[in-house]
Design a protein around this nucleic acid. Structure first.
Length: 802
RNA sequence: GCCCAAGUGGCGGAACAGGUAGACGCACAGGACUUAAAAUCCUGCGGGCUUUAAAACCCGUGCCGGUUCAAGUCCGGCCUUGGGCACCA
């Protein structure tokens, strides 16, 4: 069979009949399946894309046949620096590069036969789309959720752009790999930290995979503790946050952040100004990653001339500057208890500071006795005045109460998650629709003037001074203030690439709407994303940003649910045949086009579903791929076994019902590899049969269709049936999946010694009799005393002898 | 350092809920068909041991212990690999 012609024929059929276009109405139950829309890179579709798109395509095709109104859309996440880098490198406008890449991607997707609803296609770079991204930013601004702040930020000197902490992981720029330095920069921020608690509790209204939920929980990083006010000798005060208030009597010093506000205030009173200032300068050169690196020496300087007072007992202790304390996390100051915190212990040892043990139970000579070692073990307090003798668990609330009653402490929740840095000094992003007027300050653009288009210019290379390329385009920058109509300037920063992807799934519900980002009716109809598939690498950032965005829209009444994504699952990567990540430099990249050309789309689809556990990484193997081609050929060859019967072959009934059950369940539990396996087993059974009927064949083709849609449609058409994509998914009879006669094992003392055939649910006595009569079992029980015989119904018999 | 996964034949992987470990496929080997090759079909395929052959037997799911009539699966303690976060106070 010529798979090339067949594939083209059916792809055209699907296009022309528009069978996969979802209508936002009707009697059928809606079902929304979403895969992360790709960033259309210059290197084309990756075999990794094929894995997840095929998986969700199989689910979509089955759900449609089961009578659901399935929405399975596709679009393009085309803003962001990768697109810009690509464009710069290849000397073409990002807009043209994106257009070109989208064309390639779309062609590749079509060649794989994905059942996307192309009528809802869009790119985040379409003005009709980013108009609404800008509009939503204005809502953030109008609801006091967006603000400008001058903060130390991660600066990539190579990309000339500020990166969020997320993007600067490991102290290197995620995009270019060069090291990141710290720089003060005025940035637009979104108040994401205000949503920390809601983002945490909202997880209860989702069906995310457990590991995905955990990823989010860890990212939000909630900790409950006490914020304690600390007075400074001679005036002034600061606060510290601690989760270990029980160690408060053990404080022997405080450490404050070199980049915080406090040290600036204290400066006039500092005796060793030069030393302190040098240390601040040194710190500014380091990234947060370097500063918080665990295995480096604990640097710091003592702030001479200033002491703090331990609020619980009035003890005066020194204050240090230490770069491991971050100015923008917590209160920018920490209390140090060297006996019960290893980091403090090392710091104290290095700077020769006092140590007071306050929790009994282990020696603190060599190392600190930390909370994970003393919590929950009934350890008691010591050197802690009236709290001596209380257990840690008793002391925690008691000390907290005393401090709270004194009005110098508060029970608080602290979150690791910070506000979202929303500006990028880049050309290829959504322009931020804000105008700066000398008189009025920052003024939002009038909503009816949106979209604010990116200017169509030739120069989009970054500037050296850290300004966005847009800053050079004076025609564009100079405008009038919407408020006072005086001369004003536009914001030249653009939005991060996370912006467009934070709400694209809402747009798919109503993609052509030019009055709203999506109508409430359409969103109510689709309700939410039922099934969202993406990579594990996006579970922290993209998914959190998207949930934050949705929760905000919900709070201002623009979306129907606080959580718009129900199930989130993640796929494993397709690795190179050497078990390493595919990359050009390693020369292990497989181009899906080559595979489609040589083996056909159906073979590639089957192979990627069969290659292993869908949620785990799996290495590429062209040999295994060939095996899947052989399987398909076998299915085609079954044509020669067709008989004239109009009925199912009765001898195949049991395996047919088993296969329907297995495939139906497996496709909705991501067990694609065992679904393929079950279909292979059914095919082998057909092959072994004398002959098969058209109905037998049709059943196999229907079950295989979600994974291999082209060849199955063709074979089915040749049988004279209507297209599979317009038919109904088969149902199984549970009774027919159960064998009446089964073989079970017989063990003697837990070791398998034989097996017996029994009837399903056969009486225990009868099974026992058969087991004891089995030849080899007899050999192992002869002359021994039978203590007991355990019969597990329909499973196993175990004879215990002595 | 913390958090999350995962370790099963030569390979990818099966094993629902503690109940016959290795489904399905790949690779390999032998055979059939063929002038030959490809394709296809048949047989074998964890290791050991024994045997003319078969059966039987012993070992075996990263390592060490434990619970149980029974452990890949549960518990305790390690080791290794992958991923995430990070002096988080």
């Amino acid at each position: 069979m010529d798979f090339k012609n067949i594939e083209k024929k059916w792809q055209d059929f699907w296009d022309n009949t528009k069978v996969f276009e979802a209508k936002t109405n009707g009697d059928k139950k809606p079902y929304y399946i979403l895969v992360e829309f790709p960033y259309p890179s210059g290197s084309g579709l990756h075999v990794g894309h094929v894995r997840s798109y095929t998986a969700q395509d199989a689910l979509a095709r089955m759900k449609r046949m089961q009578g659901y109104n399935v929405l399975y859309p596709m679009g393009w996440d085309a803003f962001g620096s990768p697109a810009e880098q690509y464009a710069i490198k290849n000397h073409i406008h990002p807009k043209d590069a994106v257009k070109e890449n989208i064309k390639t991607f779309k062609g590749q997707m079509k060649s794989l036969g994905f059942s996307f609803d192309w009528s809802r296609e869009f790119s985040t770079t379409d003005p009709e789309y980013y108009k609404w991204t800008q509009w939503q930013f204005l809502q953030f601004y109008k609801h006091n959720m967006a603000y400008k702040a001058t903060i130390p930020v991660n600066w990539c000197p190579t990309c000339k752009s500020v990166l969020s902490n997320e993007d600067a992981a490991g102290g290197v720029c995620e995009r270019c790999g060069d090291s990141v330095v710290q720089k003060e920069k005025s940035q637009w921020m979104l108040k994401m930290s205000e949503y920390a608690e809601d983002l945490l509790t909202g997880l209860d209204d989702t069906n995310f995979a457990e590991r995905v939920k955990l990823g989010q929980i860890n990212w939000i990083g909630k900790s409950t503790g006490v914020e304690l006010d600390v007075d400074i000798v001679g005036g002034g005060k600061f606060s510290v946050f601690t989760t270990c208030i029980e160690t408060v009597y053990g404080i022997t010093f405080f450490v404050i952040a070199p980049d915080g506000k406090l040290i600036k205030e204290l400066m006039p009173r500092v005796e060793n100004k030069e030393e302190v200032e040098n240390y601040i300068k040194e710190t500014a050169k380091k990234s947060n990653m370097d500063r918080t690196e665990l295995n480096k020496g604990k640097t710091g300087v003592k702030i001479k001339g200033i002491k703090a007072i331990n609020p619980i007992n009035g003890k005066e202790v020194p204050i240090f500057l230490g770069d491991f304390v971050l100015g923008d996390y917590g209160t920018g100051a920490v209390m140090a208890v060297p006996t019960h915190d290893q980091r403090d212990f090392e710091y104290a040892t290095e700077h020769n500071l006092e140590m007071i043990q306050v929790i009994d139970g282990a020696s603190v000579e060599e190392k600190a006795f930390e909370k994970h070692d003393y919590l929950g073990k009934g350890c008691k307090l010591m050197n802690s005045a009236e709290f001596d003798g209380l257990t840690v668990e008793e002391a925690k609330p008691a000390i907290t109460k005393k401090l709270v009653d004194l009005g110098i402490a508060r029970e608080v929740n602290n979150y690791k998650m910070r506000d979202w840095i929303f500006s990028r000094q880049r050309f290829w992003g959504e322009p931020i629709p804000m105008i700066y007027c000398e008189k009025c300050g920052w003024v939002p653009m009038d909503e009816k003037d949106l979209p604010l288009l990116l200017p169509d210019v030739a120069e989009y290379e970054p500037t050296d001074n850290g300004e966005s390329p847009l800053a050079k385009i004076t025609d564009w920058v100079n405008t009038t203030c919407p408020k006072c109509h005086g001369a004003a300037k536009r914001e030249t920063d653009t939005m991060p690439n996370w912006a467009g992807s934070s709400w694209y799934f809402l747009r798919f519900m109503d993609a052509c709407n030019d009055k709203e980002f999506a109508s409430m009716d359409a969103m109510k109809y689709w309700n939410r994303v039922d099934w969202y598939n993406g990579g594990m690498e996006h579970t922290a950032r993209h998914l959190l940003y998207a949930r934050f965005w949705v929760q905000f829209l919900y709070n201002i009444g623009l979306v129907p649910n606080k959580e718009m994504i129900w199930t989130r699952v993640s796929h494993g990567m397709v690795l190179g045949s050497n078990n390493e990540k595919m990359s050009k430099s390693k020369g292990n990249v497989i181009n899906p086009d080559d595979i489609v050309n040589e083996y056909g789309a159906d073979t590639l689809r089957i192979y990627e579903m069969f290659m292993g556990d869908y949620t785990s990484d799996a290495p590429w193997s062209t040999d295994s791929l060939k095996g899947c081609k052989r399987f398909l050929d076998k299915v085609v060859r079954l044509q020669s076994k067709l008989n004239d019967s109009d009925e199912f072959t009765s001898s195949l009934e049991s395996i047919q019902h088993k296969t329907i059950k297995k495939v139906t369940n497996d496709l909705q539990t991501m067990a694609y590899n065992t679904a393929v396996s079950a279909l292979m087993i059914l095919t082998n059974a057909y092959e072994d049969a004398q002959s098969i009927s058209k109905k037998d064949y049709e059943l196999l083709l229907t079950l295989l269709n979600p994974i291999a849609p082209h060849v199955t449609e063709e074979l089915n058409e040749q049988l004279g049936f209507k297209p599979i994509c317009e038919s109904t998914w088969p149902e199984y009879d549970e009774a027919k999946t159960i064998d009446k006669e089964i073989t079970i094992g017989v063990q003697v003392n837990g070791k398998l010694r034989g097996s017996i055939n029994i009837e399903l649910d056969e009486a225990e006595d009868s099974v026992k009799e058969k087991a004891l009569a089995e030849e080899n079992v007899k050999k192992h029980t002869e002359g021994l005393q039978i203590i007991k015989v355990i019969v597990v119904k329909n499973k196993i018999v175990n004879i215990v002898v002595k």
